[in-house]
Design a protein around this nucleic acid. Structure first.
Lengths: 268, 268
DNA sequence: CGGCCCGTTGATATGACTCAAATAAGGTGG
DNA sequence: CCACCTTATTTGAGTCATATCAACGGGCCG
């Protein structure tokens, strides 16, 4: 476990590591990076026509975290929202007995911290599973009399609604689908997210462990591993450790309640 | 199946049936009922000190639905939010193949329609499982420049956050807990909701079927029935059809990943 | 080199599903 | 008011999918 910098110990003058280089020994001072409101809105896909071009003085600060650093901890005060600028993260939830349930794997353009907007205490844990760069949205959302903020608030309602429906879909996947379909839907949804960022939707690297995938899907890591191996043997997906190559998108999409791959292999 | 009145066919001059009488043959014109902003805010637990007492001219219309009527349909335009004034409902989600997944059982004080605030199309189905009365919040949320609405918008963000976290908890329950613990948590959470409305938290009637409970918890109706029977035999809960009486709250709370009741009964 | 984490695979156990039948409850029409 | 039909619920027997337990190999790091 590396040194952990949580929300609470956040220091605006922290020393950040250039996340574009793999040589982890190099660490140097960087000028603090800022995004304009326009850049932020573009990342959040807020219609730019709506945004007043005047009053562009408001800028949003960036913050970098290294792999395995904790970003939010359940129970700590929620003073910011974050928008993912780059990198990959994992959100999770732990019950009183320490059992962890992975809730999602946020990527560029997604928002962190919505779980804290009820009583202004984060409910989720957030961990960087790669080096990440976030944009800080200071949580002065209570004060929405400033019409400048109205676009952001409206977008926040949209995002909330989308997140809610998405969580409901996952509820359905976990509660109603067999292991094969769950893993299939997971691979497909990851592909979609990569596609939105301009990457390939059928060839990518998993950033998370089998254990994380299992926790996310309500399965054990062994079942995830076995299911991936089945897909690999059946030729639907080429799996090599973290590397995923989807060969037969249609079969993967078709998997739901029907006969498992295993029986199909036997009959073939 | 009774005649179904959906959102789309909503007529402001509809004839409502008095839901307080059991004599179903009596139906009569009623004056339309309205709630003041203050009444609505009280129902939503919005701090009343914050609410300006002037401009009380804005009122919110009520609408009544009879048992089994559909209130929202997935895919229809979202023009309103609703706040439950009385009665019991069921929200669900159906995939392309008609498989229904129950998402929740809203009661008095809860909000309906948040699923429609992304692209202004409802994503959930909502059905009345008793006669219900709802308060309509017209969806002009885009226009938040009116400071009168700012309290509502802020509360909406709080509610959204709470809903999101609650859905995440259910995700954990479905994905990680055995059947007994799922049913136990369901009974406990229902009790809590009843308690908040001023009813008993350990003695109540289920409004939904075993099938609905099963769908909600990711179980079959048989498993729900068996689990309730086990609780009944073990004396933890007295179950008689829809009637629930929780006798041993502590044991119910303690149920999670540990040995099932069955083994405990054998060892006793 | 040794320890740790991650992933794979096998053998076995078991919890929950499926299929099936019987009972109970509720609503409808004669 | 009763007969009938439909829906909801209970319970049993058997099966299956997934969890559990366990062993092994590989990569990474100290």
């Amino acid at each position: 476990m590396k040194n952990e910098k949580t929300m609470l110990s956040y220091n605006p003058n922290y020393i950040s590591v250039n996340h574009n280089t793999d040589t982890k020994s190099i660490s140097d001072f960087q000028p603090r990076i800022w995004s304009s409101k326009q850049q932020l809105f573009h990342l959040l896909k807020i219609d730019e026509k709506k945004v007043d071009s005047n009053n562009q003085s408001v800028n949003y600060q960036h913050i970098k975290y290294k792999q395995d650093q904790k970003i939010c901890l359940s129970g700590t005060p929620c003073s910011n929202l974050f928008v993912v600028y780059s990198g990959f993260l994992k959100t999770s939830w732990s019950d009183a007995y320490g059992n962890e349930k992975v809730l999602g794997f946020p990527m560029r353009g997604e928002i962190l911290g919505l779980d804290g907007l009820n009583d202004y205490e984060y409910k989720n844990d957030v961990v960087a599973i790669s080096d990440v760069e976030l944009i800080i949205i200071p949580n002065k959302i209570n004060n929405i009399h400033d019409p400048e903020d109205s676009h952001l608030i409206n977008k926040l309602l949209n995002i909330f609604s989308k997140e809610l429906v998405n969580t409901q879909k996952i509820e359905y996947i976990i509660g109603s689908l067999p292991a094969e379909a769950r893993v299939a839907k997971f691979l497909l949804s990851l592909g979609q997210k990569y596609a939105q960022l301009g990457y390939s939707d059928n060839s990518y690297n998993l950033k998370m462990t089998r254990n994380d995938i299992g926790s996310y899907l309500g399965l054990t890591l062994e079942t995830v591993s076995r299911t991936l191996s089945e897909f690999n043997k059946a030729g639907i997906v080429t799996v090599d450790q973290k590397s995923i190559q989807i060969n037969d998108l249609e079969t993967l999409k078709r998997l739901r309640r029907t006969t498992p791959i295993r029986s199909r292999k036997l009959s073939a």
